[in-house]
Computed example of a mutant assay.
Amino acid sequence: MRVLVCDDEQLARDRLVRLVDGIEGVEVVAEAANGREAVLAAQRVHPDVVLMDIRMPDMDGLEAAEHLSRTEQPPALIFCTAYDEHALDAFRVRALDYLLKPVSRDDLDAALTRARKMTRVQASDDDSGEKSTLRRQHISARTHRGLELVPVNDIRYFLADQKYITVRHGGGEVLIDETLKDLETEFGDLFVRVHRNALVALSFIEGMEQAPAGHHQLRLRGLEDTLVVSRRHVAGLRKVMQRL
C-alpha cells in the first residue's frame, strides 16, 4: 500500500515515516509540507493513502482533501493532527480516520488496515457522509499538464459554456466541470452575477459602460476583453459597484 505523508513540520513527517516503515506491506512514496504540495504529489505518485495534517500554510489539509476527492482515483484520507475540533469537518470531506498526535503505532496500523479494505472506488462512491461546506482557497482543474491549482483571489471571472466553466485568471484560463450555481453559493461574497452565464470577481471590476449596440458591458482590471452584462443584472450590479 502506497502512502503519502503530509505535515508542515519536518519532525512530525519523519516520525510518521518511521511508523509507516515499521508496518508490513506499506511504503511511503512521497512527502509534502503543505496541502498544495500534497495534491500535486498525489498526481505524480498515485498513493493509496494520504496521512494529512490539518493546520498548514498555503493550503490546509481540509482543502487539500477536498481537491483530492475530486481526482479520478481519490486516495483514502487519514488525518493526523494535534487538534480535535476539526473532526467533524474532516469527516465531511470523507476522511477514513482522524488520529490525534502523537499518533501511536497501533492506531496508525488499525487505520491503515481499514484503508487496505477500502478500495479507491468505494471511497469515491461513498455518498453517505454530509456534503462538505468548506470554502476552497483554490480551484482545481485537470489539464494536459496535470492538476492545476488556481488561487481564488487570482480569478477574474467564471464563464459558463454548455457543460464546462471557463476560469479566467492572471495566468490564462482553465476549464472545470462544475456548475455556476454551486460556485456562486460557495463564493457569493467574492463574485457577482452579471449574466446567466457569468460570475465576476468584485476585486477586479473597473467599470460598466454602454456599448454602441445598446447593451451594457463590464471592464475588468488587467483585461482587454469585456463581459456582457444582461439587462436584468444592470441595476443590481450598479448597487454593488457603489459599495466597492
Rank of each mutant, 00 (worst) to 15 (best):
S203N: 10
V49R: 00
D109L: 11
H215I: 07
S203K: 11
M208K: 14
R193W: 08
T119N: 04
R232P: 03
G236N: 06
E186I: 08
E184H: 06
T133H: 00
D182N: 14
D161N: 11
V229I: 15
A213V: 11
V228T: 14
V45L: 13
H46P: 07
I23S: 12
D106I: 13
V229N: 09
R145N: 11
D7V: 08
R231P: 08
D161R: 14
R243L: 15
M241R: 10
P212G: 00
E31H: 15
D125F: 12
H216A: 14
A95G: 13
D58R: 03
P151S: 08
E173P: 06
D7S: 00
I139C: 00
D107M: 08
D107E: 13
F191R: 07
E66M: 14
R18F: 10
E24R: 15
E31K: 15
A76T: 08
G25C: 07
L62Q: 01
F191P: 09
L223K: 08
I139G: 04
M1I: 11
R44Q: 11
V229C: 14
A213D: 01
T166V: 09
L223I: 10
L62I: 00
E186Q: 09
S128T: 14
H195E: 01
P212C: 05
G222D: 00
L183S: 08
S128W: 05
P151H: 05
A110E: 15
S69G: 06
D189E: 11
A87L: 10
R232I: 07
G25Y: 01
A64H: 01
L237N: 04
R145G: 11
R105E: 07
G188L: 05
L202S: 09
N34D: 06
L134H: 03
H233K: 07
L19M: 12
H215K: 03
I205E: 03
V45M: 05
M208F: 06
A141Y: 00
E186R: 14
L134E: 01
A65V: 05
R219Y: 01
L244F: 04
H144N: 10
E148F: 12
E31C: 11
L237H: 02
A95P: 06
D125G: 10
R105P: 10
E173M: 10
D97V: 11
L77V: 12
V50N: 01
P74E: 02
P151C: 07
V152L: 04
E27T: 09
L159I: 08
D8R: 05
R196K: 14
E209T: 09
L202F: 10
V200L: 08
V3A: 07
A38P: 03
A198H: 03
D97M: 12
A141V: 02
A123S: 04
D126Q: 10
S124D: 00
A235V: 10
A235H: 13
F191W: 06
L19E: 04
V103G: 15
D127A: 05
E63K: 03
T179R: 03
L112E: 05
D189T: 15
S104Y: 06
D107Q: 13
N153F: 01
A90Y: 02
G129V: 13
M208E: 04
A110R: 13
H86A: 05
P102W: 08
L183P: 02
Q137M: 02
I54T: 04
F191Q: 07
C6R: 07
L183D: 03
V28T: 12
L183W: 03
K131C: 05
D84M: 06
L199G: 11
